[in-house]
Amino acid sequence: MINAEIAGIIIMLIGLYGLMTKKDLIKQVLAINVISTGLVLFFVGMGYVEGGEVPIMPQQTVVDPLPATLMLTTLVVDVAITSLALAIILRMRRDER
């Protein structure tokens, strides 16, 4: 059986493959986003406990909330950097023209 962590790692590798082979700058930024998606999946899968509940009220078994919280921060970084990268690409095209 494939679990969420393995799936996350595979998605990250797909993103890295994209960075190694695609020449188009927009595609490279998308490849970075694919890596970050894989990373989020890896972390969320890491915190998962079989049969665990939402960690809001004290219950029998809950999933580990920390990895999901960490990923919120990473997602914020990701959004900021994606917009910055796209802005730089636009300016770069204007320069080269």
């Binding site: 990250m12 890295l16 960075l19 700058l25 490279q28 930024v29 970075i32 890596i35 970050s36 990373l39 890896f42 972390f43 890491m46 920390l66 990895p67 990473t74 970084v77 950097i81 910055l84 990268a85 730089i88 690409i89 300016r91 770069m92 320069d95």
Partner: peptide, 27 residues
Amino acid sequence: KRAAYKYLILSLTASYLFVFAVGMIYL
């Protein structure tokens, strides 16, 4: 701009790999 873009992509990929490693340590 070109230098900034190269720095951005390489540094960001390295950061993601670093977080991935931190995740493994946490695991």
